[in-house]
Design a protein around this nucleic acid. Structure first.
Length: 560
DNA sequence: GCGATCAGGT
DNA sequence: CACACCTGATCGC
């Protein structure tokens, strides 16, 4: 829970992620992402009144955040007062005091934060120095080094202060399975199930409201948070897959939308600011403890170090305080580094994946195996190798198969897929079923005859029943930017069934491609064009880095 | 009726 | 333990 009060020391007329109290006087508002704890006061009558009086006050955020925010009618009054800024596009903003006319210019750059859809960090540059507000972020080791706009002249920018997401800034969260590890684990688990037959489907039971306002698989994004408990962290460090079986038919994925302790340290030591301010004080720790951890990574604690160091040296220096094993490769490239995001940004996976057999026209006795999904099995599954997949399943997961499918030979999976056209299960029935039993919490499976022929009643059983699901390690509540709550959304949008149709249209590994790929100086969307005026790069005289294009937004009252 | 806050839940 | 919500109860305006 963010304890950031909204204002930064260097630019106190700006308010970020807080919209109450002192922030009601801000000259400009910034929203890093659409999570409620970063939106305090955003729809309060006091702020609404202020907007009506102060016509020059705007809210700046990413295009995705704007869309998400305006999805809720409760925030519609912001519609004409939100200016979306493209990712990685330095944009000049005028901070005007409406009473005195006093004006201050800042350049803000949005950098992907990897926390949830639309989430960004804000990099401010102006007369009071360069400051970085991370919001909530999950960045893998080395990702800061790949952010071009954090660099200038081949080295990291001179950053005065970092306002840092310290949610897991505690050694007990030293390592958390990476996005990629988690994703790979889930993808393999899903693959191992759905490739069995067209009737083996995966039910993604999504409680998150806005993970699914997109329409295809490449946007499997939710804002649910996964995290892991410390004891399991240790165990998982040796595991290639961040998934473990938690019940007869349930799996849990260890994942976090916040950077781990080591990732935080990696990030901060790379940025090496003069000051660092924790945005979050985790329960059980104190500001002092967090600062004690972070301060040594700041410039002020490294008096012997020159203010600027070539990155190559920085990289080597990092190893003195980071006992990391695998960062060699990440930092060997000379700067400015090309953007080569190995790990996708903003790719988040669904918390709960119900794996089940659509047993229409099939006998029902699928039997999920018990115990852990073996890490070794996962490892031996090449991405697009169904044969290996089946071999790995042959023992422990043999019981998963229906009698019908268990009789099939190893090549049957492919044939199944080819036959899917004529044997596709009636997915509508599942959804309908789901709707009907929603209030019962899936406790009461429909009769097999209702669902059509030999439809397995266990299809709708609870997670400990015959179906299988993957859920978070510590199930967390989903994010609803809509004030309507999840009920405000079609219940079908809360669940997604992965079927053979999807398998045909695109390999499941396309999940891996759903990355947000930041582009520098990308073309401006029409909406952006309407709002922002592109101006020559040298118009902002205070800008320290004239080699970068800067967009200027009309923040002083021009009708948008 | 509304918002703020808290407790308890996932 | 930790997130980011949810619902429901209570209180004050």
């Amino acid at each position: 829970m963010s304890s950031f009060m909204g204002q930064m020391a260097e630019y106190p007329t700006i308010s970020i992620d807080r919209f109450d109290r002192e922030n009601l006087k801000a000259r400009a508002y910034f929203l890093s992402h659409c999570h409620k704890d970063h939106m305090k006061g955003l729809r309060a009558p006091t702020l609404k009144r202020r907007l009506e009086c102060s016509l020059k006050v705007y809210l700046y955020c990413s295009p995705v955040t704007k869309e998400l925010l305006l999805t809720s009618p409760k925030y519609k009054f912001w519609e004409k007062r939100i200016i979306s800024i493209e990712i990685e596009t330095p944009t000049q903003i005028s901070l005007v005091d409406e009473a005195s006319g006093e004006k201050e210019e800042v350049v803000v750059t949005l950098l992907p934060a990897g926390h949830c859809p639309g989430s960004v960090m804000f990099l401010f540059q102006g007369n009071n120095g360069t400051v970085l507000y991370t919001g909530d972020f999950r960045l893998a080791k080395g990702e800061a080094s790949r952010m071009e706009l954090l660099h200038s002249g081949g080295r990291v920018k001179d950053i005065q202060s970092v306002y840092l997401d310290t949610t897991f800034c505690d050694p007990k969260f030293y390592q958390i399975p990476s996005r990629e590890e988690c994703l790979n684990g889930i993808v393999e688990l899903v693959r191992s199930w759905i490739t069995r037959s067209p009737y083996h489907v995966v039910w993604l039971n999504c409680k998150a409201a806005y993970g699914f306002m997109w329409t295809d698989w490449t946007c499997l994004e939710t804002c649910r948070t996964f995290f892991i408990i410390s004891q399991q962290t240790v165990a998982l460090r040796s595991m290639p897959v961040a998934i473990r079986r938690t019940g007869e038919s349930s799996y849990r994925a260890c994942f976090s939308f916040h950077s781990s302790y080591s990732e935080i340290k990696d990030f901060l030591s790379y940025i090496c600011p003069v000051n660092v301010y924790p945005n979050v004080i985790p329960i059980g720790t104190t500001v002092d403890k967090v600062v004690e951890i972070l301060k040594p990574l700041c410039r002020s604690s490294q008096s012997t170090e020159p203010k600027y160091k070539p990155l190559g040296k920085l990289k080597r220096a990092r190893k003195t305080h980071l006992d990391s094993e695998e960062e060699e490769d990440l930092f060997d490239d000379p700067l400015p580094l090309p953007l080569r995001h190995k790990a996708p940004y903003q790719l988040t996976l669904h918390p709960e994946v119900f794996v089940m057999t659509a047993t229409q026209n099939q006998p029902e006795q699928e039997r999920p195996s018990t115990g852990y999904l073996r890490a070794e099995s996962m490892q031996t599954f090449p991405w697009a190798n169904f044969i290996d997949c089946e071999e790995s399943n042959s023992e422990s997961e043999e019981e998963l198969q229906t009698p019908a499918s268990s009789k099939e030979d190893l090549g049957a999976v492919t044939r199944h897929q080819q036959k899917a056209d004529v044997e596709v299960p009636q997915w509508e029935v599942f959804f309908k079923r789901n709707d009907e039993i929603t209030d019962d919490g899936l406790e009461h499976p429909p009769s097999s005859t209702e669902a059509g022929g030999s439809q397995s009643p266990k299809l709708f059983s609870d997670s400990d029943g015959e179906s299988t699901h993957i859920s978070s390690q510590n199930s967390s509540q989903s994010t609803h930017i809509s004030e309507q709550g999840s009920q405000g959304w079609d219940s079908q949008s809360d669940t997604v069934l992965l079927t053979s149709q999807e398998r045909k249209s695109g390999d499941i590994t396309s999940l891996n491609k759903s990355s947000y790929r930041p582009r520098i100086k990308e073309s401006i969307p029409a909406t952006q064009m309407e709002q922002n005026t592109l101006c020559p790069k040298d118009t902002y005289s205070d800008l320290k880095h004239r080699d970068q294009d800067v967009k200027i937004v009309p923040s002083v009252g021009e009708p948008l």
